[in-house]
């Protein structure tokens, strides 16, 4: 089973990702901020990270930069998702180490398809 780590400070948003991805057969782990996310990422292995930008303790950019510098986990794909309505610079996300960037909210089908593709999980 492919494992996805969702890092977002909003419980509802994490629950949303969990629902969508678990329905697709993914195992989902959560972290509520960048720091917690980095700890989880370092301690367990994942096939994909989904990272929010604006979070307490450690923001998404810092988290992605740290991930890309850790040899054990730097090869893992990451999706960065900005908060709804915020016009954020996609390039900042890519420069920090994201492999794909979305504006929130991401429709369930789009999320499911993209996560499947980025983890190499065959279509159902």
């Amino acid at each position: 089973m492919k494992r996805v780590l969702v890092i977002d400070d909003a419980t509802t948003v994490r629950m949303y990702y969990r629902q969508v991805l678990e329905a697709q057969g993914f195992a989902v782990e959560e972290a509520a901020n960048g720091y917690e996310g980095l700890e989880k990422a370092l301690m367990e292995s994942f096939d994909l990270y989904i990272v929010d930008i604006n979070m307490p303790k450690m923001d998404g950019y810092t988290l992605l930069r740290s991930i890309r510098q850790e040899p054990a986990i730097c090869a893992t794909p990451a999706i960065m998702i900005s908060t709804e309505g915020q016009v954020q610079d996609a390039n900042a996300a890519y420069a920090a180490g994201a492999n794909l960037y979305f504006n929130k909210p991401v429709k369930p089908d789009v999320l499911a398809l993209t996560v499947r593709m980025l983890t190499g999980e065959k279509p159902t």
């Binding site: 794909p77 593709m117 190499g120």
Partner: peptide, 13 residues
């Protein structure tokens, strides 16, 4: 490395 992981996964897909 992450780009290559993405590409290899997408190609598998």
């Amino acid at each position: 490395l992450s780009i290559f992981t993405c590409l290899s996964n997408v190609l598998r897909y």
